[in-house]
């Protein structure tokens, strides 16, 4: 991995993890700059990230995970990077797999590589309801994308510049960009693949799938996935 690849971490109140995580990423990918999008944190996330040597982009208030990701994409495109690897800042995604995901994209094997926690056995126990949801979306994604997708809800991903140019448009769904994005990418002739990664359990209550959010998530996917199949305007 060289200086043409950026590592993106959307972060909201991650002061407990961000410093150590950035230092670990620096050891693994010393030439690749880290970009932290501080999504309106009320703790010292931004200062700690800056001290650890990352580019920090701060939202004036909390805008949500998808908006933070897209802000990072826009920054990376404006700075002219060719590749991007994104991972969560809460320490759930093991940074040792950054080069693995990057290599799959940089070698031209695919345009977007998803880090899957299910390809080589599970790394932590997942509650039944969440597991059932993942199974459902795994089947839907695999059928619609016409390739085996084992972890469509994974935010641990690598992508090339073509995908980034696509993601900075207003059509990018900024609330829960998951399975619907994969369908959108497939419909626009992007190649999607997976690589095995290790993930750790998320902190209780911090997940974007906590509380009543899964109900809205299911509704949003049920509406958006079929619509993405008939939408025409984003076709390249």
């Amino acid at each position: 991995m060289g200086p043409d690849t950026a590592v993106l971490l959307p972060a909201y109140n991650e002061a407990d993890h961000i410093g150590n995580l950035l230092r670990r990423i620096r050891e693994i990918a010393p030439e690749s700059p880290c970009v932290v999008v501080d999504d309106g944190s009320t703790d010292h996330t931004a200062e700690l990230a800056r001290e650890a040597g990352a580019f920090v982009i701060s939202h004036p208030f909390n805008m949500g995970y998808g908006v933070a990701l897209q802000t990072g994409y826009k920054f990376v495109v404006r700075r002219g990077y060719s590749y991007l690897v994104q991972l969560d800042a809460d320490g759930q995604h093991d940074p040792r797999f950054i080069p693995v995901l990057w290599e799959r994209v940089a070698s031209g094997h695919c345009d977007l590589c998803i880090g899957s926690r299910f390809l080589e056995g599970e790394t932590y126990s997942i509650p039944f309801a969440r597991r059932a949801g993942m199974f459902l979306f795994r089947r839907i994604a695999s059928a619609l994308v016409r390739t085996t997708i084992t972890d469509p809800t994974s935010g641990y991903q690598a992508m090339n510049r073509r995908v980034l140019d696509f993601f900075i448009k207003d059509i990018y769904p900024t609330d829960y960009p998951d399975t619907d994005v994969l369908v959108m990418l497939y419909r626009n002739q992007f190649r999607i693949a997976e690589a095995p990664v290790i993930m750790h359990a998320a902190q209780p209550g911090k997940s974007i799938h906590s509380g009543l959010k899964p109900v809205y998530y299911l509704f949003k996917m049920a509406l958006d996935i079929p619509l993405n199949l008939i939408r025409r305007e984003e076709k390249q």
């Binding site: 580019f55 920090v56 982009i57 701060s58 004036p60 805008m63 802000t71 920054f75 207003d170």
Partner: peptide, 20 residues
């Protein structure tokens, strides 16, 4: 909402680029 999102992103990116 889309316009506010784009505006927030634009301001945040300008601030980040200024500090860079």
């Amino acid at each position: 909402e889309t316009q506010v999102k784009n505006l927030v992103q634009h301001i945040s990116l300008l601030e980040a680029e200024k500090s860079v």
